[in-house]
Design a binder for these strands. Structure first.
Lengths: 249, 249
DNA sequence: CGTTATCTTGACGTACATCAAATGTCGTGG
DNA sequence: CCACGACATTTGATGTACGTCAAGATAACG
C-alpha cells in the first residue's frame, strides 16, 4: 500500500540525477531562499561548493536514517517530506518547493525522507563545507535560524491540525495554506495548483484518500470550492474556509 | 471545558510573578541551556539584561497573539506549550522544563501559549536587548540554531504520532519519551514523574482523558507498566514499549 | 489504444469520542 | 486532626466520524 523508497544513487552515470555546477546569478530560488542572505560579492564562495542536481518525479533524494551528507535548496519542482512507521504507515510532514531549504537536522542522520512529486531541481551543498564556510557569514546563520523558527511555527500549527481538527477543518486549512504558492505574486490567488496526489494530501492531513475525496465533494456542494480537477482547485469562498480552518464554524 | 487563560500581569506588586536579578553562576539551567554557549567571562553581558521570574502553577506566562517582548529560559519547574482553536479545543505542542528555551517565533507575536504546570522559575530576556547582543556571540546563534533544529525534529516526530499512531502507540511513545527527564542522570530511569494532568497528556497526544486512562489500564494489564499513581509511572518492559511506539507491534 | 495506477463512490466496521455517574484527591478552614 | 467542597480521575454505556473494504470510473502513459 505504501511504495518502498528506492535506493539512492547519487553517483553513477545511469542515474536520473544529473549534476552540473550551480550558477547563482540566474537561479530562480536565489531571491527567496536562504542564499539571499549572502551578497552577490560573496556568493561565489558558496557557489563553489554547490552542485546542481536534477531529480525525476517519485525519486527519493533524502532517506530517513541515512548519513546526512548534504544540505539541499530546492530551485524548482515540489517534494514531499515524510516519516514512516515500521508497518508502512506514512506521515507527510510537509511539502517543499522552490526556495525551501532542507537538511537542517543536527544529528548525523536525516530524520525524514524526501521524494520528488514532480521533477525537482536541487542545489546541493556538502554539510562539512557549509560548516567550514558559515562562520564567515553571520547573516547566513541568522537566516537559517529564521528559517528554522518559521518551520517550527508551521509544525506547531500542523500539530494542532492533526491532533484536534475535523477532516473538514483539515481540508479547509490545507486549501487555504496552499493558496499563496507564488511568493512573487502579490495578492493571494484563488486558483490552487496541487502537484501532489490524493494519497500525499491524505498522508499530510492524517486522513485516508477516501475521506479526503468525500470532504472535497462536500466542500464543493457547499459552494466553498469549484468542482476540482485532479491537480487544481478553485476557492470560491475564502473567508468561510478560513473560519472553518480556525474551528470557528 | 477548557479553562480560559488569565490575563498576564508582569508588572504589578500584587502579581504572583516576583522579579529579581538573575545570577548565572549558580543557575541550575546554565549547564544544559543555550547560555552555556557563552563563556563565564562574557556571561555577565547576558546576565545584565536578564530578570529572574517566578510563576505560580497554572499561571499563563506566554499568550498566543500577544506581542513577543521576551525570550524565556526555564530554570525550574515544568510548563505546557499549547495552541487553541476558536471553540476551545486545545493542542499541547510540548512540555518545557529546566533548560528549555522559549520564544523563538520570528513574528512579532507569540504563536503559542505557555502555562506553568507546577511552579516555574524563568530567566527572562527582552528580545530587543538579546538581538543587540547576539551579533557579538556567534556561538550563541549557533546554539539557538541547533536548538531550533532539534525542536523541529521533535515536532516532526509528533506529527507522525498525531497523524498516524493508534492511542496505544501514542501512550507508549509518550512514556518512552518522558523516561529520560534528568539530563544529568546517566542511564535512562524507568520511574517516570509526570507533573502534568491527564488532560494535558490527552491534549498532547490528540486524545481524550478517558482514552488515555483506558490505554494506561490496558498497558498495566499487559505488564508493560506498573499500576500508576496520578503523577508517577514505572516502566516494566521498555523494549516492548519502544517497539509499540514505532508501530512494530 | 490497451494497460495500469489513481481516483471515485458506496456499504459496512471500528477506534475513539461523548455522555453520564461514581469515586478519589487535595486544599481550606473549623 | 478532620470535615467539607471543588475538581480531577476513573469506569461504563452509547454514539459517531472516520477507516476499511470492495467495485467501478477516470485519467495517465507508453
Amino acid at each position: 500500500m505504501v511504495s518502498i523508497a528506492t535506493t539512492i544513487d547519487y553517483g553513477s552515470a545511469s542515474t536520473n540525477l544529473s549534476k552540473r555546477t550551480a550558477s547563482c546569478g540566474s537561479c530562480a530560488a536565489r531571491p527567496i531562499s536562504v542564499c539571499n542572505s549572502i551578497s552577490d560579492h560573496d556568493i561565489g564562495r558558496l557557489m563553489a561548493v554547490a552542485t546542481d542536481v536534477d531529480v525525476d518525479a517519485n525519486r527519493t533524494f533524502i532517506e530517513e536514517g541515512e548519513a546526512a551528507q548534504f544540505f539541499f535548496n530546492i530551485t524548482g519542482g515540489t517534494a514531499r517530506l515524510f516519516k514512516l512507521l515500521a508497518d508502512g504507515r506514512r506521515q507527510v510532514t510537509g511539502f517543499a518547493r522552490r526556495g525551501h531549504f532542507l537538511g537542517l537536522a543536527v544529528d548525523d542522520a536525516y530524520t525524514f525522507s524526501a521524494e520528488a512529486i514532480e521533477p525537482v531541481r536541487l542545489c546541493r551543498f556538502p554539510r562539512a563545507k557549509v560548516y567550514a564556510l558559515i562562520d564567515d557569514f553571520p547573516t547566513l546563520r541568522r537566516r537559517l535560524l529564521e528559517t528554522a523558527s518559521n518551520e517550527l511555527v508551521v509544525a506547531q500549527e500542523q500539530m494542532l491540525l492533526l491532533g484536534r481538527k475535523t477532516a473538514r477543518e483539515r481540508l479547509a486549512s490545507f486549501l487555504v495554506s496552499q493558496a499563496v504558492p507564488p511568493e512573487v505574486c502579490g495578492g493571494a490567488s484563488d486558483r490552487i495548483h496541487l502537484p501532489m496526489s490524493r494519497t500525499d494530501i491524505a498522508d499530510y492531513l492524517g486522513l485516508t484518500i477516501e475521506t479526503v475525496r468525500r470532504v472535497i465533494t462536500k466542500l464543493n456542494h457547499d459552494r466553498l470550492i469549484a468542482p476540482p480537477t485532479t491537480t487544481d482547485v478553485v476557492i470560491l469562498d475564502r473567508d468561510t474556509l478560513v473560519l472553518l480552518a480556525d474551528g470557528a464554524l
